[in-house]
Simulated assay, not measured.
Amino acid sequence: MSKNKKDSAELTLTERIEGSLNSFLARNKKVAIIVLAVVVIGLITLGIVTSVNNKNLQAQFNTIDLLETAYSDLQVMGSEDEGYQAKYDELVAGLNDLSVKGKKYPSLKAQYLLGMVAFEKVEYQKSLDSFVLTYSNAGKNYLASLALTNAAVSAEELGNDSLALEYYTKVIDEFGLSAAEAPKALFGQARLQEKSGNTELAKATLQQLADQFPTSEFAKIATNRLALL
């Protein structure tokens, strides 16, 4: 086939394809318009939902900032001070309301602060429950290791040494020695190991603490304790 004939054949084929496409669009113009409208509406809706979600999340960050300030203010007041109970009730209500609004940072922090408030009120079962829930929802957020460490402390206050040891051990196993709470967790492990009569394991844990965190206050206590075991 000559080049001119080939070009003519390709042109004819192109024209036929374009003609078929135009014919299809003409026959299905209404359908095409409806589909396009649905796509546009979907994109608009997605944009609106995203915008609303972002605004809601920003509002939650603003709320947790205010609640943290209220929590700090409450720390410098005595329980007998005028207005203390009203501020306490308002704080707890706000934290409870925010804590159930998902698993983003503001909700996690609200759940964590509920644990702190309960601990300070000597309501150790409540604090334990709040800290465990925070840990469960926080994933790899820094609040997870912090909450787990505080859950261990709450368990100790409840007299449940085996559960406390389990949580201290989890801090190291799940978050490693890079976790900010690692020295405290190791020290907690060592104390409970010694308390249960496992002196050799306690010594090994204290030595690990002293070696890994030589400048930590817990390491200094560990070194002193090692000299006595």
Score class of each variant (00 low, 15 high):
residue 88 Y to A: 10
residue 185 A to Q: 10
residue 208 Q to A: 14
residue 223 T to Y: 05
residue 91 L to C: 03
residue 183 P to N: 07
residue 200 E to R: 03
residue 198 N to S: 10
residue 118 A to L: 04
residue 19 G to R: 04
residue 131 F to Y: 10
residue 193 Q to E: 15
residue 115 G to I: 00
residue 163 L to H: 00
residue 147 A to K: 01
residue 181 E to S: 09
residue 224 N to F: 06
residue 116 M to H: 08
residue 160 N to T: 10
residue 35 V to W: 04
residue 49 V to N: 05
residue 36 L to K: 00
residue 99 S to L: 01
residue 21 L to F: 00
residue 197 G to I: 03
residue 149 T to W: 01
residue 189 Q to T: 15
residue 119 F to A: 15
residue 173 D to V: 08
residue 73 D to R: 01
residue 3 K to N: 10
residue 151 A to V: 10
residue 11 L to P: 10
residue 132 V to N: 10
residue 161 D to S: 11
residue 172 I to H: 06
residue 10 E to L: 12
residue 176 G to T: 11
residue 60 Q to I: 04
residue 121 K to E: 15
residue 93 A to N: 13
residue 75 Q to Y: 05
residue 35 V to A: 14
residue 153 V to L: 09
residue 150 N to Y: 06
residue 201 L to S: 13
residue 224 N to R: 05
residue 229 L to R: 02
residue 130 S to F: 03
residue 132 V to Y: 00
residue 125 Q to F: 01
residue 221 I to H: 08
residue 180 A to D: 15
residue 103 K to I: 05
residue 29 K to L: 15
residue 150 N to W: 03
residue 95 L to Y: 01
residue 179 A to Y: 00
residue 27 R to D: 15
residue 192 L to Y: 05
residue 1 M to K: 08
residue 129 D to Y: 04
residue 20 S to P: 10
residue 189 Q to D: 08
residue 5 K to F: 12
residue 2 S to D: 15
residue 27 R to I: 14
residue 95 L to T: 01
